[in-house]
């Protein structure tokens, strides 16, 4: 798009409802608290696989797949649902920075295989979980529609 066609950034940001921003903040606080709870229950030993973050990011993938399939293919729901649950709760629950820190800690401990294994296991598991979440939501939607009202 040519530059002249683009409305000013100010207008684009003003178009974001304040309720959406508040929903993201509240959801983020809830999601991050849940992540902290799991990390406290399964503390990562130095030089070992960070199971808590792995499970968090995998579960978050499963839930975002199911959520987005539901919101985009059945009904969008009220305008705050995606900001609250998707961007806020699941975005705050999952983390990329702790994942990178986990790879860094393994590399720092000279555990190159662990770093590699953790890096690729998380990617594979999170993507598979997101696909499974989407697929399951679609199946449930299709079944509900067949038996529908």
């Amino acid at each position: 798009m040519p530059r002249s066609d683009r409305p000013p950034l100010r207008d684009a940001l003003r178009a974001l409802p304040a309720t959406a921003l508040a929903a993201v903040a509240a959801g983020g606080a809830i999601g991050a608290s849940a992540r902290y709870g799991i990390a406290t229950a399964l503390p990562a030993e130095p030089g070992a696989f960070d199971l808590a973050t792995f499970l968090t990011n995998t579960t978050g993938g499963l839930l975002i797949g199911a959520l987005m399939a539901t919101l985009t293919e059945i009904r969008p729901g009220p305008h705050w649902v995606r900001p609250f649950l998707g961007v806020g709760v699941l975005g705050g629950f999952t983390t990329f920075s702790t994942y990178i820190a986990g790879i860094g800690r393994a590399l720092d401990a000279q555990a190159a295989l662990l770093a590699l294994g953790y890096a690729f296991a998380t990617i594979a598991a999170a993507l598979t979980a997101a696909a499974a979440g989407m697929w399951t939501a679609r199946r449930l939607i299709a079944t509900a529609r067949r038996e529908g009202p």
């Binding site: 978050g60 797949g65 975005g91 705050g92 983390t95 920075s97």
Partner: peptide, 23 residues
């Protein structure tokens, strides 16, 4: 660390959106 790393950086970054957008 809880405020800035676990809280701020943890929520600033995301794995769920990365997974979804890749999918």
């Amino acid at each position: 660390t809880a405020l800035l790393a676990t809280g701020f950086c943890g929520a600033l970054t995301t794995y769920s959106t990365l997974s979804y957008e890749t999918l």
